[in-house]
């Protein structure tokens, strides 16, 4: 029974991906891509990865989807084109890609069996962290350095996007709300955020022991914030505003501070003192969730459109 479901999912996934690539209308293709994100979420559930499923649906599908839709609306008809391939060229590329896929498929089939795994190591070590969700343990303990540097990557992407504003208005606010806010949107922006914030906080809170965590929670909070800004209920913040910058930097800064603390009270950089691992990790996650929420929302909002209020 499950095999049938898996096969159907796989076929649907590939058909939809092909549709995204082949569809002529740009907007239809992007909407199909959004659906692809949801489908991928289901696939991740079948791969026993609920944490990834949440992340994929929230960021991979939803976040990227809204980003692309906004871009399509802004670019409509004047998007940048490079010379496309000729028919023959396309066929050749398609053949090449098919060969790559086939080779890759072969490599996947040829992977070592029984599969090597760190699952035993990860579940043995988890006691030292006091966490219940092994994925969170990997992200915030075993491989915390990756997570720390990745936060810097997100921040840099934001710095890069902000730097695309013209000189005079750098540090100003992006433009997110439409000129006239439709009534239903304003209504939704009043109804939904209380729910959304509760859900976001819940996702962060259970993340230590159950599927969920900073990214997923941060995305939900970012979505709520964007919704409120889009409906014109709150103005978009100036990039230069100290409050925004503090929230953005707060998460990584606390992470770094605790990492350095490890030099003094534990085994070294990014080591947690025995018995205090869980509260420290939850504190880091709390700060990171806010930073991630602010960063993701600002990444979607784009560079400044009006000069900072000063």
């Amino acid at each position: 029974m499950m095999v049938l479901l898996d096969l159907a999912l796989a076929a649907w996934l590939l058909a939809l991906a092909l549709h995204v690539v082949m569809e002529r209308n740009e907007r239809s293709a992007i909407i199909a891509f959004l659906a692809l994100g949801l489908l991928l979420g289901l696939v991740w559930v079948r791969l026993a990865a609920p944490d990834v499923a949440l992340t994929e649906i929230a960021i991979g599908g939803g976040g990227t989807g809204i980003l692309l839709l906004r871009a399509e609306a802004a670019l409509r008809g004047r998007g940048k084109h490079e010379e496309g391939a000729t028919r023959g060229g396309k066929l050749a590329v398609a053949a090449g890609c098919a060969v790559i896929s086939a080779g890759l498929g072969f490599a996947v089939l040829a992977l070592a069996s029984p599969a090597p795994t760190l699952a035993p190591a990860a579940s043995d070590a988890i006691a030292a962290t006091g966490l219940g969700n092994p994925v969170t343990a990997v992200l915030l303990a075993y491989r915390a350095l990756d997570t720390l540097l990745e936060k810097v990557v997100v921040l840099l992407a934001l710095v890069g996007i902000w730097s695309l504003a013209p000189d005079g208005i750098w540090g100003g606010a992006p433009e997110v709300a439409p000129a006239a806010v439709p009534g239903p949107l304003a209504w939704l922006a009043r109804i939904l955020p209380p729910f959304g914030v509760v859900i976001g906080v819940y996702m962060f809170w259970v993340g230590a022991d159950a599927p969920g965590g900073t990214f997923q929670a941060g995305t939900v909070l970012a979505a709520m914030w964007l919704l409120v800004i889009m409906a014109g209920l709150l103005p978009p913040p100036d990039a230069a505003s100290p409050a925004l910058r503090l929230v953005l930097v707060g998460g990584p800064a606390l992470f770094l501070a605790i990492a350095f603390l490890g030099f003094i009270v534990a085994d070294g950089f990014l080591a947690y003192p025995e018995g205090f691992a869980k509260p420290l990790i939850v504190a880091i996650e709390a700060a990171l969730t806010l930073s991630v929420a602010a960063a993701l929302a600002m990444l979607v909002a784009g560079p400044a459109r009006k000069a900072p209020a000063r």
């Binding site: 190591a121 350095l145 490890g262 070294g268």
Partner: peptide
């Protein structure tokens, strides 16, 4: 060499 956080590879970095 430095083992980050005291987590030996392959689990750690």
């Amino acid at each position: 060499s430095y083992v980050v956080g005291g987590w030996q590879p392959p689990l750690g970095i």
